[in-house]
């Protein structure tokens, strides 16, 4: 019941977007099977949403501790750059390429976690440092060039299919299940929620809040790295300038839509996934309606403000009496 209450609005919004497409875009709901693989707008939405979904899962944990990670886009760029360099400049097997680039992402997360957890730097600022320097690092790695590669095994991450569905969707599903088990079947979830809800009290009850924070930033960065690999394989290149640009807002938006409060505390993975799907559905709809892609930025900005306002207690108190007056 509680879950439904939290997910009511995103589900309704998603339903509205789909309904709109059902009425105005013919063929939106068509799903075809080609070469043993499903194709169609719906599948495409999930596939395109995968990077944001992955990051939003990590971001959910970060936000649950009352933090924020603005550096995810830069970490994506770094992961893509590292992978591309390893593929083009070395003879490393694909597995090692993936492991190394994810490990690098993880380390950047530990860095963020150290700044926030150990040094007590405001999360916005701590991750802002990496947000900007990180893109610089990615640019240095790639020498400011777009590094293209050609490796079908590696490209499976973003382009492959399994049991008829894009591999990216499986990746999201797998991460979702893994994280759910990891947080709900161990004490991790409780410690994260406690830290986000009242850090001091948690510390006095013995929770190692520093480790909790390190952990969530590390997980978030790791997932950002994974998303970076997906994006890189999608275009068969590492583009340090554009990879993951603006994605931090999408991820934060997805989390907020999904019902996890920015002030920390309770978190909802399913809500975040739903939020990410909603965002992508909206973007796809905008594109299929022939609206210039730039508009998506504007629309997202408006949506995030609207969602935050709806969740804001103050706003409801401000608007509800007036609303009632109008309707009566």
């Amino acid at each position: 019941m509680n879950t439904w209450h939290k997910l009511k609005w995103p589900i309704i919004a998603l339903a509205l977007v789909l309904l709109f497409n059902f009425i105005f875009s013919s063929g939106f709901f068509q799903v075809e099977i080609k070469n043993g693989r499903l194709y169609g707008s719906l599948i495409d939405i999930l596939h395109r949403a995968a990077p944001v979904m992955l990051i939003s899962l990590g971001m959910t944990l970060v936000i649950a501790t009352g933090g924020i990670d603005l550096s995810v886009g830069s970490v994506m760029a770094i992961a893509g750059a590292v992978a591309a360099l390893l593929l083009t400049k070395t003879e490393q097997p694909v597995a090692m390429v993936i492991i190394i680039s994810l490990a690098v992402s993880f380390l950047f997360g530990v860095w963020n976690g150290t700044l926030v957890g150990l040094f007590g730097i405001t999360p916005i600022v701590a991750t802002l440092i990496l947000m900007v320097s990180g893109r610089g690092i990615a640019q240095l790695l790639t020498d400011g060039q777009i590094v293209t590669f050609d490796n079908s095994a590696f490209e499976f991450i973003g382009r492959g299919a399994l049991l008829g569905l894009p591999f990216t969707i499986w990746l999201v599903l797998f991460t979702f299940i893994l994280l759910t088990v990891f947080t709900k079947k161990t004490a991790v979830g409780l410690f994260i929620e406690a830290t986000g809800d009242n850090e001091k009290a948690s510390a006095y009850a013995g929770v190692n809040t520093n480790v909790v924070k390190m952990l969530v930033y590390a997980i978030c960065s790791l997932l950002a790295g994974l998303a970076g690999l997906i994006v890189a394989t999608d275009i068969k290149a590492a583009d340090a300038n554009n990879a993951g640009q603006w994605i931090e807002l999408d991820a934060i938006l997805a989390v907020v839509i999904g019902g996890t409060a920015l002030t920390g505390g309770r978190f909802f993975f399913a809500g975040s996934l739903l939020g990410a799907t909603l965002i992508q559905a909206l973007t796809t709809t905008i594109l299929t309606r022939g609206v210039p892609v730039q508009w998506t930025l504007v629309v997202k900005a408006l949506v995030i403000i609207a969602v935050c306002l709806l969740q804001s207690e103050t706003f409801r108190r401000f608007i509800l009496p007036r609303w009632k007056k109008v309707t009566v």
Binding site: L190, E193, A194, N198, A201, A205, G206, V207, G265
Partner: peptide, 23 residues
Amino acid sequence: EAIIPNLSVRENIVLALQVNQGW
């Protein structure tokens, strides 16, 4: 310094025990 306001009575009770048992 003591209560975790939005967590349930159950979770607030269990917290210290869980810390003692480990992650």
